[in-house]
Simulated scan of single mutants.
Amino acid sequence: MNSVIHIGHRAIGADHTPFIIAEMSGNHNQSLERAFEIVDAAAEAGAHALKLQTYTADTITLNVRNKDFLIEDKNSLWDGSNLHDLYQKAYTPWEWHKPIMERAEKHGMLCFSSPFDESAVDFLESLNVPAYKIASFENNHLPLIEKVAKTGKPMIISTGMATLSDIEEAVKTARAAGCKDLILLKCTSTYPASPNNTNVLAIPHLKQMFDCQIGLSDHTMGVGVSVAAVAHGATVVEKHFTLNRADGGVDSAFSLEPAELKLLVVESERAWQSLGSVQYGPTAAEQKSLMFKRSVYFSEDVKAGEVLTVDNLRVVRPGFGLHPRFYQNLIGKKARIAIEKGTPAAWALIE
């Protein structure tokens, strides 16, 4: 496994802050100006990359009106929609890709895309994208995975709905076609997803199974699930992003707003910083706090030869005297010299 993967100027791996991807999807609402505003807001929030989706209604489905092409799910945001109509509404015009990418570049933010068929890969290659993302619904599209792998660029594959054998087939296809830099994203393909069906414990298992970096494509509300994923080893977090959920749009209901995306950037980095290593005992930063531990002190003036009792010895703060484990052993012993109240107990003072 490559412990570090580079996408453009950005290093991705366990020793680097989580790579945060803002997914625009169709939240531009067919306005290029709004798309630019989304780019600006994502950069301002601190996202490391903006992701697009590259398809047309005709490259992703058929313009057919029978029942197979109708979404019938009362729990779906898109219930009652015809597939062709939905994708016609959601797609990002291909002529917008270059100006959107240039806008992102001005902010120092990476921009790449999810191709949904082979023609989209050819188009994105003409724009020299730094990486590719395979969406969950395409993770069984082996010819597409093979074509992307042959570009030699880093590939991110979402694993939504995929069985372990499905993932294995996708990974084998990618690697056989030349993919060396592979990242898998744990994903739950419900929109929105709920925390209790996200199963971030799969992240370390996926890492063990496929010997590659693992991230999370997160469709839950808020940032808590993404932060938990980082705590379980996710090096990448992808979230849908919009300017304002109230503005509507095909994915707006489960997209982060700018303040939330900024919070994700900050809190995921804090989660990553907290991982550290397995360590016990005081850290270097805790050394000064040792004084607030307990230890044995003389609580009264004691004469030479005087017997030590519960009246002249106490376990108190600060922690510069003998460890409290020795308190009972000291009771009944005699002072070797005269000792002033407030002196830390030490064996040199005891007969």
Rank of each mutant, 00 (worst) to 15 (best):
M1N: 10
S3M: 03
S3K: 04
H6A: 06
H9M: 14
R10K: 11
A14W: 14
T17C: 04
P18H: 14
F19E: 05
A22S: 06
G26L: 00
N27D: 07
E33L: 13
A35M: 12
I38T: 11
V39P: 08
V39E: 01
A42N: 15
H48E: 12
L50K: 15
K51W: 01
Q53R: 00
T59W: 02
N66I: 14
F69A: 06
K74I: 12
K74W: 14
N75Y: 05
S76E: 14
G80E: 07
A90G: 07
Y91I: 15
P93M: 07
E95N: 12
E95M: 12
W96Q: 11
E102W: 13
K106Y: 07
D117T: 08
D117V: 05
A120E: 14
A120K: 01
N128Q: 15
V129W: 04
K133G: 05
A135W: 12
V148C: 10
K150M: 07
T151D: 14
I156K: 02
I156S: 03
I156L: 10
I157N: 05
I157S: 03
S158T: 15
M161E: 14
D166L: 11
I167T: 15
E169C: 05
V171G: 07
K172N: 15
A176P: 13
C187A: 06
T188I: 05
T198N: 09
A202F: 15
I203M: 00
P204Q: 01
M209P: 15
F210E: 02
D211I: 04
T220F: 03
M221H: 11
A228D: 12
V230H: 03
A231V: 02
F241D: 05
G249S: 02
S255Q: 05
P258S: 02
L261H: 04
L261C: 07
L263R: 10
L264T: 00
A271E: 05
A271Y: 06
G276W: 10
Y280G: 05
G281P: 08
S289N: 10
K293N: 04
S299W: 02
S299G: 00
G305I: 09
V307N: 13
L308V: 02
N312D: 09
L313T: 00
R314I: 06
V315D: 00
V315G: 00
V315N: 01
V316G: 01
F326E: 02
Q328G: 05
N329F: 09
G332E: 01
K334N: 02
A335P: 14
A335C: 04
A335S: 10
A348D: 07
